[in-house]
Amino acid sequence: MSDTTTTAVTGRINGREQTLQIDNADLLLDVLRDLGLRGAKPSCEMEVCGACTVQLDGLPVSACTTLAAEIDGRDVETIEHLDADGTLHPVQEAFLRHSALQCGFCTPGMVMTAKALLEQDPDPSREDVVHWLEGSICRCTGYATIIDAVLDAAEVMRRAR
């Protein structure tokens, strides 16, 4: 195995199994964006800003610092999958209700981070939300509306359960 600098991988991207020949040096973010999934954004490139956040097996990761080959046998979910059935995810709805965005460049990463949190912990405290979002930078909003939106989404999702 591995005589070359590429690797054949089979993973699920947004629910659909795909087999790709991956250049080992490819980062997950570049491959996703080349596939047309451009919701995840490059920004800091150093795992601190969160703009490139996608879920890998349910947990948020920095796609800018994850090898694309990591999708082998795993499940990647990007922002594009959230309304694949035509309806927005409750986190997205809450972001709209709270006007929790301005330029929108951090928004897909924020939404994916928040969604992952609510999957792990359906009833987070405000402090829990702040703690999870600590690694996601927004330069426009001052965060308060984002935190409110996540707490609101949590409540909506709990009620729907």
């Binding site: 594009e80 709209l96 929108g104 928004t107």
Partner: peptide
């Protein structure tokens, strides 16, 4: 009135195009 942002749906779904996209 605080009407909803016109760019909100495009931005929460990650479909809003930036020059980089």
């Amino acid at each position: 009135h605080s009407v909803p942002r016109v760019d909100g749906p495009a931005k929460v779904t990650g479909r809003a195009p930036y020059a980089l996209d």
